[in-house]
Amino acid sequence: MDFITKKEIDLVALLQKSHCPSAGAIVLFSGEVRNHNVGKSVRYLEYEAHASLAAKMIAEILLAARNRWSLSIAHAQHRIGKVKVTESAVVVITASVHRGEAYASNRYIIDRIKHEVPIWKCEHFADGSKEWGGNCNCDKETGDVNKHIYEFESV
């Protein structure tokens, strides 16, 4: 599976490929485009990435997840280009013997992708305006662009 793709993410097909005899739990997270943000109506999002660096980093994050948990499957794919409302912008699939590891590792992977990987969204609003938004701003608290506050650490 390509880590970065211009094509529409086919969640059903990806899930179908993710069944594994040794896994009792599969978690599929789909980050989808919603029709509103900061009180404004959203028409669509446009994603941009430093593709080679982003792919390399996603591979490293997946490997780190596999080293931390016992996983049968750890996949992630992020879409770039124009993504319409209700379409998937990012998918993370994890599978393990029991659900605890599948949930925890899935959250770890999506958190790290959102905070660290060079991918950016530009929001296109219904009023015709656009804005590069939703940036990681952990450095405002940590004082370091390489230090993040992850959700997976607080659960």
Binding site: L53, I113, K114, K121, G134, C136, D139
Partner: peptide, 10 residues
């Protein structure tokens, strides 16, 4: 040299 603004994927 590539300059990388704060990420906003997902």
């Amino acid at each position: 040299i590539v300059i990388i603004p704060p990420s906003s994927g997902g």
